[in-house]
Design a protein around this nucleic acid. Structure first.
Lengths: 417, 417
DNA sequence: CACACTTTTTTCGCGGCTCGAAAAAAAGCC
DNA sequence: GGCTTTTTTTCGAGCCGCGAAAAAAGTGTG
């Protein structure tokens, strides 16, 4: 509330709403948009025809044959030709990238395996540069302008989404990816936390269930979280925040990958489950990487008989439950989606988790806590990045208008900000 | 972003900014406001003259003699006659109330002692009704209209600020104070959490230090928290939220007043410190109330010699430290203000607290964690309530305009919402 | 003490925005 | 084919913020 509102801010916001309605899909008609936004039909009509003239939206025949009388509604949809976005996803030993048109259709993609932990800093950056360059030079774009690049990384990013501050996938820290990529390609870039992107994807996948308040928990080698509160992504004040895995479960407890003790992750990460299931001491240095099959074998053993494996998953559930309980003391309960490899073992984790939550403040009104497993972590991440990139174009570039007026538009000055 | 922006929303927001500038004090001139808001001088001039005509603002001679050349700036200040606000503060065994003019000056106040824990539900409500009625009938208002009532309670309120859901001061729950008071007095009411109001007060007292991100922790019989993130009060999704005292410190640990185990409060509340200092078992039922002098005696004993008292304060510090560490894993570190009785014992609590934080994720970048003690809990609460009530009038009523145009204005319809 | 100078505040006309009402368009119904 | 219904566009009106210019209210100077 520091800065005043000028007249064009108004138009910008209302344009953004029309674009957002089209982005939500369902071929919203002008009349529907007017009803949703509360704006007058004239306003929506004016904005729509502007957007169509600027080749941002297109009219689509309503596919439903419209049994009703009266002039049929004309659906508004995003013009796929309006722009492109590129997403980069950097994970442990894996770098992938996609190109998308403005409507969100996948144009093409590439996946590379590389040893991220061993790679020197320059080469890690170089790999990202190269895969991005190959996207930009790819013929699939067919003349469309790439207006936005999103790079999602495992680990902590800064609040301005410009740098990777720390990541488990590499020993290198504070890599200013956004600055580096923008300097080379002159296209606006943001660097995002992978769990936040997964949460973003859930909003688009199931807007009924995941709308204003919900939690995405990544159960894999480490524990991550994406948190949406009151309709917007919750981030830290300086960093991408919400390092749920490093909330303290047991003071001075088990040794965590981060070097500290007692973190939730030190009980619920893959390495912690493995450590407990295989009879290793909880103070033992965490293993670097664990094969998916190995975790599946542990889960199967836990399902087969009551033994250390079952106990290990129970301990994981307990740590997650108490952690969620503490979180819910702060934000009130909300639906939870479990994502990632170990979400497949939620049958082993869930009971102890629920039991632990019930013993905390969060268990008070546990009605609104529902758990749901989303196994396809990779697809979720890709979708989230795509939507983040596209909605950025919606809001920052197309809502502002006066840029895509046919001409190439000044890339360096206006699009990077 | 669901609802579109109309034309008058624009004016409303810009009016609100001018009022806010006056509320911040310093007799801001039109020129300064134009600079701060980024709006043009003409706009600020138009809005100011409207607000002066509506008797919301007044011009004040700049008291500084203005050594500069040129036409001297004319300060804008709130017109104390524009409205009134009433605050009610309900705490353990205490009910107090104040009347304020629109500029925030105290008109008069009343304080009552009553046995809140023993009082039947109706009588508790009745006491609030009565003290409010006495305020409204008090001659000090001198014809000014009371436009807002804020009731702050210890305990949990709902997210809409209409009901007290639970409180340690009474066995009764779910009391819809806002509905009850509005039905009787036809003045808009909100019900707020006391710690949130203390945080609100800190923003006004020391805006340099406590601005966008900070934490107020109430150290008294229980442990409370008010949290400001990214410039706005952080609340739960359903309740006033941020029940920091009931985050889990040690799973299945000490018995808490809330009936659960291992909460931070069960180690750091007055009753917990007393329990540990006097050699009682940590599973023992918490004492209901502890005199201020008794806690001071424990603190003195802890300062005098190394014994169970010192250990009790250290345990409290440790619990708070690990709790803050977990919190900082979620939101990143921020300045902390310690408020309330046991803030006076921060010399005993602080070292263990810092040590514990250093062992958590929050200790990573501990640079931005500063601790500060604010002993005058009562004054802080009163200030916070006052500012909450007055800024509500600023935003919801005066920024909207077209209401206080001389006439009494339709109370029932427009002011309650 | 008059006049120049400086800074703040107001005035005025312009362009842009949204709105409501009415008109136009595009169907189905009989 | 004409009537009805619903959607969309058009048109004039009313507000609002802006920039430029004017007015206002002081200080400095000779």
């Amino acid at each position: 509330m520091t800065v005043g509102m000028r007249h064009d801010d108004l138009r910008r916001r209302n344009r953004a709403m029309v674009i957002a309605a089209a982005r939500r899909g369902g071929q919203a008609s002008r009349t529907e948009i007017a009803a949703i936004t509360g704006l007058s039909h004239s306003t929506i009509s004016a904005i729509s025809s502007d957007l169509i003239a600027e080749r941002i939206l297109t009219e689509t025949r309503q596919e439903a044959p419209a049994l009703k009388r009266g002039r049929p509604q004309v659906g508004l949809a995003l013009d796929p030709q309006a722009a492109c976005a590129v997403t980069l996803m950097l994970s442990l030993n894996s770098l992938s990238a996609t190109s998308l048109d403005y409507a969100g259709n996948l144009l093409e993609e590439e996946h590379r395996r590389l040893d991220t932990r061993a790679l020197p800093r320059d080469e890690l950056i170089g790999e990202c540069m190269d895969i991005l360059r190959r996207r930009l030079e790819h013929p699939a774009h067919a003349g469309r302008q790439v207006l936005r690049i999103v790079l999602a990384v495992q680990g902590i990013t800064d609040a301005e989404a410009r740098s990777m501050l720390w990541s488990p996938i590499t020993p290198h820290t504070d890599i200013p990816f956004a600055d580096l990529l923008e300097a080379s390609f002159s296209i606006a870039v943001t660097v995002e936390n992978d769990c936040n992107m997964m949460a973003e994807a859930l909003r688009w996948r199931d807007p009924e269930r995941y709308r204003d308040d919900f939690i995405a928990i990544l159960l894999s080698h480490g524990i991550g979280m994406g948190l949406v509160l009151k309709g917007s992504m919750f981030t830290g004040t300086h960093s991408s925040g919400v390092e749920f895995g490093h909330m303290v479960h047991r003071p001075d407890g088990a040794l965590c990958r981060c070097g500290r003790r007692g973190c939730i992750e030190a009980y619920a990460g893959s390495y912690a489950i493995w450590r407990n299931a295989t009879g290793h001491d909880e103070n033992e240095e965490p293993r670097g990487d664990i094969e998916e099959t190995e975790m599946q074998a542990l889960a199967q053993a836990a399902r087969d008989h009551d033994g250390p494996e079952r106990r290990a998953f129970r301990i994981a559930g307990e740590a997650l439950g108490f952690g969620l309980g503490s979180l819910f003391a702060l934000i009130d309960p909300a639906p939870v989606a479990m994502v990632g490899l170990n979400a497949a073992a939620f049958d082993l984790i869930g009971p102890a988790l629920r039991e632990a939550i019930a013993r905390t403040a969060g268990g008070h009104h546990s009605g609104s806590i529902t758990f749901d497993t989303q196994p396809d972590q990779v697809a979720l991440l890709r979708e989230g990045c795509a939507m983040r990139a596209l909605t950025f174009i919606d809001h920052r570039i197309f809502a502002a208008g006066r840029a895509a007026q046919g001409e190439p538009a000044p890339l360096h000055s206006s699009l990077i900000a």
